[in-house]
Each structure stands twice: as C-alpha cells, then as structure tokens.
C-alpha cells in the first residue's frame, strides 16, 4: 500500500527543535528518509496541492486561488487529470481524502465532509479535524486500497493565528499523536513493502518574514495573522524509489510506481 499523508504548513522549524515531545515524528526521522523541499514557486496552498497531485506547475494547471471572480473554484474548474484519475483508469484502487486544493477539500472514492468546509478556524474545529480525518484514514487503511492520499489542514490556520506562541507546539503534539495512531498503532509501518510519503505544501514563518502575504494582517473578522507561508516544506519518505525534489514529484512517484 502507498500512503501519502499531507500536513498543510508543517515545518521543520517547529518539528526539529521539539523532537523530544514529538515521539512519532522522531521515530519517523530515525527510520525514514527525510528532507526539505525548497519551493521555486510562491508558497500558496491551492496551486501547490493541485500541482502535487496533477504533476504540473501552476503555469500549466492554471489553478491559483480558491475563489475566482467571486465564485468558489471546484475540481471541474481545473482542466487537468489528477493522479487518482490516472490510476483509477489503470484499474488501481486509489482513494483521496480532504485534499485542499479547493474548498471544500476534494475527495475521491471517499465519503467525507471537510471540517469547517476544509477551513477549520477554531479550537473545536481543529480538534474535530484531527480526530475525524484520523478515524477515516484508519478505517480506509483497513480496506486496503492500493493508494491512500489524505491531508490534514489544521496546522496552517493554527500557525497563521498563533505563530510564535507555545500553543503551536501543543498542536504539533496532537498531530504527532495522530501520526502514531495512523502509522504505528495500525501496523502500517511494520508491514514490509508499504510505502509512505509525508509532505507539507509549504513551511511557515513569522508574518513579517514571509515573502508572500497569503492573508491580510487583520482579517475582516478581526483576527490578527501572526505567521505566513515559507518556501521550505517538509518531506519524509519510506520505500519510495522516486526522488522527490518538488511537489509535482509526488504525482511522478505514484505514477511511476503504478505503471
């Protein structure tokens, strides 16, 4: 089985200095290959998640924003084939859960409703997302598809709102616990031949440090943004032959594996 776990906005800046309290990240770093993806393009989530699973850069897939011309964009507005379309045609059982290149996030052969339409914005929704997505992944792993792609989005909003505060590490600890449930408690990591990619679409940094401004400093609902996107994304892989140097290589790795 090939599992791709996306963690929107996960950054080594938080993970590496806190490995003592993130035991599952630590285990992964000890047993898997890991690295940093230095984005060449601007670290905006919609084109990056889109490119990751269609194998094309934003110049080609042309999907750059959640809303165009006042209308929420959907899968149908993006004229490219995604990896699930390709592998499904080839007869593989591929599932995609909560992929946030559109709002609400996209699902393929999975029944799921994104928490807060895929934009969880408070503690209740962040907890709910971590819980529900973990539950769904564990359920899907039992069904044994050839490929499962699933994405958590909460860390992005948490870091936008709380970057630089101790609470960020607390949420990474919760994420770490969920990784433990998905990867170690299910036995996924013990099964020989299972393949894994854990990847973020971009990293994070303080609001003033960021080269892009993805959200206004003060939103219309009065929330102050303390952090914004950085070009360095995380990558952890196990048993993946293809060398992933950019987000689009996730598509290439899967496509090559299931030729």
């Amino acid at each position: 089985m090939f599992l791709v776990l996306g963690i929107d906005a996960a950054t080594w800046k938080v993970i590496k200095p806190n490995l003592e309290v993130l035991p599952n990240f630590r285990k992964l770093l000890d047993t898997c290959e890991s690295g940093t993806i230095h984005l060449k393009e601007k670290p905006y989530s919609p084109p990056l998640w889109c490119g990751m699973f269609c194998g094309k850069g934003s110049e080609e897939h042309k999907h750059r924003e959640y809303v165009v011309d006042g209308e929420v964009q959907t899968r149908e507005d993006i004229s490219v084939e995604f990896i699930w379309d390709v592998l499904d045609k080839r007869g593989y059982d591929i599932r995609a859960l909560n992929v946030p290149f559109v709002v609400s996030p996209y699902n393929f052969n999975v029944e799921f409703e994104g928490i807060g339409f895929g934009l969880p914005t408070d503690e209740k929704e962040w907890n709910e997302e971590l819980e529900k997505i973990t539950e769904k992944i564990v359920e899907l792993l039992k069904e044994g598809p050839d490929v499962l792609i699933a994405v958590f989005t909460s860390l992005d909003r948490i870091q936008h709102f709380h970057w630089g505060e101790p609470v960020v590490v607390e949420w990474y600890k919760k994420m770490d616990k969920r990784l433990g449930e998905i990867l170690f408690e299910t036995g996924f990591m013990d099964k020989e031949g299972n393949k894994l990619i854990i990847i973020s679409d971009h990293g994070f940094c303080s609001f003033g440090e960021a080269k892009v401004q993805t959200l206004p400093k003060i939103t219309k609902s009065g929330i102050e943004m303390k952090g914004d996107h950085h070009e360095d994304a995380i990558l952890i892989t196990k048993n993946v032959g293809y060398r992933i140097k950019r987000p689009q290589d996730v598509f290439n790795a899967l496509e090559k594996e299931f030729r």
Partner: peptide, 16 residues
C-alpha cells in the same frame, strides 16, 4: 447554504 457559508468563511479569513 453551503455555498453561502463557504464564501463567508473564505472572506472572513481574507482568502477573497
């Protein structure tokens, strides 16, 4: 309602 709520959320966060 879904569409209205999604737009509201996106706008409240500053995505559009």
């Amino acid at each position: 309602q879904d569409k209205e709520q999604i737009m509201r959320k996106l706008r409240a966060l500053g995505y559009c």
